[in-house]
Simulated assay, not measured.
Amino acid sequence: MGLLYFDQEESGGLSLALQEDSAKTGKVTSAGMYFLCFPVYRLDHTVNSIAAAKDADAAFFKKLDGFQPCEISELKAGNHVFGVYGDNFFKSASYSIEALCAAPFMEEKANLRAVEAEILGKRVEISKFETEYREVLTQFTEMTSRYAQEMQAIDELLRQRNEIHASYTIAPMKRSSSKSRNKGPFRETREDAQVRDKKPSMRDRPKKKKWFNIHLKVDKRKPC
C-alpha cells in the first residue's frame, strides 16, 4: 500500500504530486508525509534493491542514493486531497488517514532536520569511500592471486629440496651394491697380479742336485 497526495489543477482535475510507499512497523503498515516548512527527504528503497541484485557491495554504496528531497515541503491553508492505493487486487483492505499539526513537535522537527543533514553528509563520504574501496579491493584481489602463486612456488622449491636430500640416501646404496658385486673378481685379479709380480725367493728356488766326480767307463762297442 501507499499514500498519495494530489495537486488540484485549474481545470478542476487532480495530478499526482507525492507518493510514499508504506513500510511495516510492528503489526501495522503505515506511510507518512511531513510538511514542516523546510526540505524533508524520502528514501526510495527501489534504487537500493536494484543495486543489490547486481552487486552486494553496490547495495551498500547505493543505499543512500534513494534519499531524495520531497517536492513539497509545506501546505497552504485550504482543501487538500490525499489517497491510498493498494497492490492486492484480490483482497480488500481497510485504512485510515490521520493528519497531525507539527506545532507541538518542535524538538522532533529540530532532530529530524539535524539527522537528515548528517545523512546527506554521510552520502558524500560514502561516495568518496567507494572509490578508495574499489582501488583497495583491486589490490587485494591481485595480492590474493599472488599469495596463491607464491605459496605454490614455495611448495615446489621445498619438494625439489626434499628430493635432493633423498638422493643422498638412495644413491650411495646403489653405488655400494655395485661395489659389492665387483668385489670378488677384483680381489681375484689383484691376487693374480701379486702372484705374477712376486719374485721367487732363495727358499722357493729348486735345489740343484750335487754330482760327485765319479768316472765311469762305458764300452761303446758293446750294445746295452
Rank of each mutant, 00 (worst) to 15 (best):
residue 203 R to Y: 01
residue 85 Y to D: 00
residue 184 G to T: 09
residue 186 F to D: 12
residue 119 I to L: 10
residue 46 T to N: 09
residue 223 P to E: 08
residue 133 Y to C: 07
residue 1 M to F: 11
residue 195 V to P: 05
residue 203 R to Q: 10
residue 57 D to A: 15
residue 43 L to C: 05
residue 88 N to E: 09
residue 5 Y to K: 02
residue 63 K to G: 02
residue 124 V to I: 14
residue 51 A to W: 08
residue 27 K to R: 07
residue 82 F to E: 05
residue 200 P to H: 14
residue 188 E to W: 10
residue 42 R to F: 15
residue 103 A to Y: 13
residue 146 R to D: 12
residue 33 M to Q: 14
residue 214 I to E: 10
residue 169 T to A: 04
residue 97 I to T: 06
residue 109 K to P: 00
residue 211 W to P: 08
residue 117 A to P: 01
residue 75 L to Q: 04
residue 46 T to M: 08
residue 134 R to G: 05
residue 215 H to Y: 01
residue 185 P to G: 03
residue 186 F to Y: 04
residue 97 I to N: 08
residue 206 P to E: 10
residue 46 T to W: 09
residue 15 S to G: 03
residue 142 E to L: 08
residue 200 P to L: 13
residue 199 K to F: 14
residue 24 K to T: 10
residue 66 G to I: 02
residue 224 C to T: 05
residue 70 C to V: 07
residue 166 A to C: 05
residue 185 P to Y: 01
residue 83 G to N: 03
residue 153 A to N: 10
residue 85 Y to G: 01
residue 198 K to C: 12
residue 111 N to S: 12
residue 115 V to R: 03
residue 55 D to K: 09
residue 189 T to K: 13
residue 127 S to M: 14
residue 106 M to L: 05
residue 47 V to H: 08
residue 101 C to K: 02
residue 69 P to F: 06
residue 6 F to R: 03
residue 34 Y to H: 10
residue 196 R to L: 11
residue 178 S to L: 15
residue 221 R to Y: 07
residue 185 P to D: 06
residue 19 Q to R: 08
residue 124 V to K: 14
residue 186 F to M: 11
residue 52 A to L: 09
residue 141 T to C: 02
residue 134 R to C: 07
residue 148 A to K: 10
residue 132 E to I: 07
residue 16 L to T: 04
residue 50 I to Y: 13
residue 195 V to H: 11
residue 116 E to T: 15
residue 175 R to W: 01
residue 210 K to S: 12
residue 154 I to Y: 11
residue 113 R to W: 03
residue 182 N to K: 11
residue 136 V to R: 07
residue 206 P to V: 12
residue 64 L to Q: 05
residue 36 L to P: 00
residue 74 E to T: 08
residue 193 A to W: 11
residue 96 S to V: 09
residue 68 Q to C: 03
residue 80 H to C: 06
residue 43 L to K: 05
residue 171 A to I: 09
residue 35 F to N: 03
residue 164 I to W: 15
residue 104 P to R: 00
residue 11 S to R: 03
residue 47 V to T: 12
residue 99 A to G: 03
